[in-house]
Design a binder for these strands. Structure first.
Lengths: 105, 105
DNA sequence: ATAACGCGTAAGGCTACGCTTACGTGTTAG
DNA sequence: CTAACACGTAAGCGTAGCCTTACGCGTTAT
């Protein structure tokens, strides 16, 4: 069993990454997402399952539909993970990576 | 043909990510890396090839050895890619992701 | 020249992954 | 009650990914 894959692995797939970015923009139903993607609806469902297992999204029933939202906690965890990686990577690299991180909110 | 895979895909593999973080800490030869990892030396070579193709590392011959370094340009590009993703994702998400980004250097 | 070292690469195997089609379930509409 | 809708999930397939072993090439040492 694939137990708890890393954020990197979850977002490695382009389709899944697109879905996630889109959900961040505005919550959507499955079919709605699928209609704008080059894959079938079940494929989208499967991607959503991976994202959900990773704690990145939440689903809320709305009648027949199922609206998927980005999970704020998961988003924060992702941020923490990226920060950790970035800090570790740049630990001994006080060099010319100018770009100061942008403001968040 | 695997043409130009994303930074996410490149860093999705744990072993490869470890190698990259370690090279950021200090440049190393292939065998040196392999001796600290649970995989064979050829496996490390293959990971390094992926990292090199992604522009994340550079190799410099030093006698019999081949020292791998992190490519500063690639590092900056990675930073840009992560920033882009993060900005896109948080575009319509001015919410409670408190954690202000840490300082870099 | 010969041997030993460090490495890249080819070949093959195994598993994980992403996709499709088919089907089952819960919900709203008529 | 029945039909239609939106969705999840199982089953199966093809491919990509990561690993190993085997081999070949350039470099340094004897």
């Amino acid at each position: 069993m694939t137990y708890a894959k890393s954020s990197w692995a979850v977002l490695a797939d382009p389709t899944r990454r697109t879905i996630f970015e889109r959900l961040a923009a505005y919550p959507s139903a499955v079919g709605e997402l699928a209609s704008d993607l080059p894959v079938s609806r079940p494929a989208v469902s499967q991607h959503l399952k991976v994202l959900k297992d990773a704690g990145l999204v939440i689903d809320i029933r709305a009648g027949k539909q199922r609206i998927y939202h980005v999970d704020p906690d998961g988003l924060a965890a992702l941020r923490a993970e990226l920060d950790r990686f970035w800090n570790n990577t740049l630990a001994a690299y006080k060099s010319v990576v100018e770009q100061p991180p942008r403001e968040i909110s």
